[in-house]
């Protein structure tokens, strides 16, 4: 289909509206996107991108504006983000990235929910105990934003399967619960020349950093510890839901800045968060 024909079809279904500051915009409702998806040989994401290219905002993204520009939203819709680990951090990251409009999410976790997950893992429900975390993530994305494509892996990432799982990702988000696996993911990300955002926590304290290809990243934080012990002091402190949620939001903030190539990144820096003392401090790792 010619771009102009597509633009005309989308324009015919758009409507005039106002931002809360009373400036006008053209919007496109989600049901119109769904209808067009059925009648055109295009994905919902492709339709949303075409709308934005013609200065029409899919309604579901209107409150991303004007913090985001049309080009920003297009860039996010064209992006693929891999989320490794769909527990506490992963559940929050999935929720935010689906809502913000990342076009494709690669969802990786071989685990199933257990009752001890219920305190913090947003994808876990009482009825879902024993079911796949990756499937729950996919179902949640579908409910939030059916335009988003999902690729799920109901298996744990390892050195063998990791490179192919992560090959299409523009950014990798570490939402793991093992220090050794984190270091392995960093090595894979480095080989694939992919940026990675990493977080970890214990109790009400946690950390976030962003690692670009070639950076020392997590080795500056964990050093040889990573090879010796897979867990940290979360074994005795647990993981509190308010800390997990704050840290997952901070990871998403880094992901968006990497994708839009805009804003200050926590590269070679570690943001330390302590909700007990309300400390938010950026430490320099180099």
């Amino acid at each position: 289909m010619k771009d102009e024909n597509l633009a005309n079809i989308i324009r015919s279904r758009a409507f005039k509206s106002l931002f809360p500051d009373d400036t006008p915009y053209y919007g496109l409702a989600s049901d119109q996107v769904a209808t067009l998806e059925k009648s055109l040989p295009l994905s919902a994401i492709a339709i949303e991108i075409a709308a934005l290219e013609n200065d029409i905002i899919p309604e579901r993204y209107v409150r991303n504006f004007k913090a985001f520009s049309y080009q920003d939203q297009i860039a996010l819709l064209k992006s693929t983000v891999a989320i490794i680990g769909l527990g506490g951090l992963g559940g929050g990251v999935v929720e935010i990235l689906a809502r913000i409009g990342i076009g494709t999410l690669i969802l990786i976790d071989g685990d199933v929910f257990e009752e001890t997950n219920l305190n913090r893992q947003m994808l876990s429900t009482q009825n879902g105990i024993g079911t796949s975390k990756a499937v729950a993530a996919q179902q949640r994305v579908k409910k939030i934003n059916s335009s988003v494509s999902t690729i799920i892996y109901k298996e744990f990432l390892d050195e063998q399967n990791g490179p192919s799982m992560l090959a299409e990702a523009n950014v990798i988000v570490d939402c793991l619960d093992s220090i050794t696996t984190r270091l392995m993911v960093q090595e894979i990300a480095n080989k694939l020349q992919k940026p990675m955002v990493s977080s970890a926590l214990a109790g009400a304290s946690g950390q976030v950093t962003t690692i670009l290809p070639g950076d020392k990243g997590l080795t500056l934080i964990y050093g040889e510890q990573a090879r010796q012990s897979s867990t940290g002091v979360e074994k005795s402190l647990g993981c509190l839901p308010q800390a997990v949620t704050v840290l997952s939001a901070l990871e998403c903030s880094e992901v968006v800045k990497v994708l839009l190539n805009r804003g200050a990144l926590l590269r070679n820096r570690l943001l330390i968060v302590d909700l007990h003392s309300n400390d938010f401090e950026i430490m320099h790792l180099l």
Partner: peptide, 23 residues
């Protein structure tokens, strides 16, 4: 980021963090 062997002179802010790995 600093080593354990770094000498202190007074006036510094010193933060010590244990390894955390939870998610």
């Amino acid at each position: 980021i600093s080593e354990l062997t770094t000498p202190l002179h007074g006036g510094e802010r010193v933060g010590i963090f244990p390894p955390v790995g939870g998610g």
